[in-house]
Simulated scan of single mutants.
Amino acid sequence: MELVLLTEMWLFRVLGYVALGIELWAFIDCIQRKPASFEATFKRTKSFWLGLTAGAAAIGALTALFGGIGLFGLLQLAAIIAACVYLADVKPAVSEVQGSSGPYGPW
Rank of each mutant, 00 (worst) to 15 (best):
83 A>K: 02
94 V>L: 06
105 G>N: 08
93 A>I: 00
81 I>G: 03
96 E>T: 11
5 L>E: 15
96 E>M: 08
63 T>W: 01
101 S>F: 12
20 L>G: 05
69 I>C: 05
27 F>G: 01
24 L>G: 01
3 L>I: 12
67 G>M: 06
28 I>D: 07
99 G>C: 05
91 K>G: 00
81 I>L: 13
60 G>E: 06
24 L>T: 08
20 L>R: 03
72 F>M: 15
42 F>R: 15
78 A>K: 07
62 L>P: 00
85 V>M: 09
18 V>L: 14
75 L>C: 09
15 L>V: 05
74 L>D: 02
53 T>N: 10
45 T>W: 03
48 F>Q: 05
25 W>A: 10
93 A>E: 13
96 E>W: 09
66 F>N: 11
45 T>N: 07
46 K>I: 03
98 Q>F: 00
97 V>M: 08
57 A>C: 07
89 D>C: 04
18 V>F: 11
28 I>N: 07
3 L>N: 12
8 E>M: 12
85 V>I: 15
50 L>H: 05
51 G>N: 14
46 K>W: 09
72 F>I: 13
77 L>I: 12
96 E>S: 12
5 L>T: 09
66 F>H: 11
98 Q>L: 00
65 L>S: 13
78 A>R: 02
34 K>W: 01
46 K>M: 07
38 F>Q: 03
65 L>H: 03
87 L>P: 04
103 P>S: 10
